[in-house]
């Protein structure tokens, strides 16, 4: 997102950052609504499928992958602050690749969870929440990839790196949402 208007000189927080915050707010309401719907449905009916999976292995591995990826994304910001272009490039690349591995892991999980979308209401809840999260991960990957491209064009310096920052914030957000979903769908 780029702003073509002049930002008010006295404005402290950048326009892009405010836009990201508001976007994440509306996304969060969306996820919370889905979770509340899930809670309500669970409250109302007996799921005939066990909602705790015996195989926590794949989701646990996936969680680790995403966490490491978020850590990589964080080091991208540290690198650009020190104008370390190779560090920036490598961190973004690693975060992005790990993100893709996560999505692949999710696809594997979808096929092995022993569930389908029409298995009672729970199947629907599971695939909707997971599916939408996966879409967000892919959006985050695109965001990181755009930043990687701009890094290769030499667009970022230690004083000019807002897009990196915003992309990483989005990545943190995606990770955070994953933890909530993991807890809600597998652990509770």
């Amino acid at each position: 997102m780029t702003s073509s208007s002049v930002t008010h000189p006295a404005a402290r927080v950048s326009t892009g950052r405010i836009a990201l915050w508001i976007t994440l707010t509306t996304e969060s309401v969306f996820f919370v609504t889905l979770l509340v719907a899930y809670a309500a449905l669970r409250d109302e009916a007996d799921w005939s499928l066990p909602h705790t999976f015996t195989r926590l292995l794949i989701p646990a591995v996936n969680t680790t992958i995403l966490l490491v990826s978020a850590f990589m994304a964080g080091s991208a910001v540290r690198a650009v602050r020190h104008n370390d272009q190779t560090g920036l490039r490598n961190s973004l690349l690693r975060a992005l690749l790990l993100g893709l591995v996560f999505v692949a892991g999710q696809v594997f999980e979808f096929n092995h969870a022993g569930l389908s979308i029409d298995d009672q209401a729970f199947g629907g809840v599971f695939f909707t929440l997971m599916g939408f999260h996966a879409v967000h991960v892919l959006a985050g990957v695109v965001f990181l990839a755009l930043n990687l491209m701009r890094t290769n064009l030499g667009d970022f310096t230690s004083t000019h790196y807002e897009a990196v920052d915003l992309g990483v914030w989005f990545w943190y957000y995606v990770t955070l949402v994953w933890f909530v979903l993991f807890a809600a769908l597998y652990l509770l």
Binding site: D118, Q120, A121, G124
Partner: peptide
């Protein structure tokens, strides 16, 4: 949409929906 297109059961009380 998922109910109508993919056969989910969010609003189908017979299948644990509401």
């Amino acid at each position: 949409l998922l109910d109508r297109q993919l056969g989910a059961h969010f609003y189908n009380t017979a299948q644990g929906g509401s």
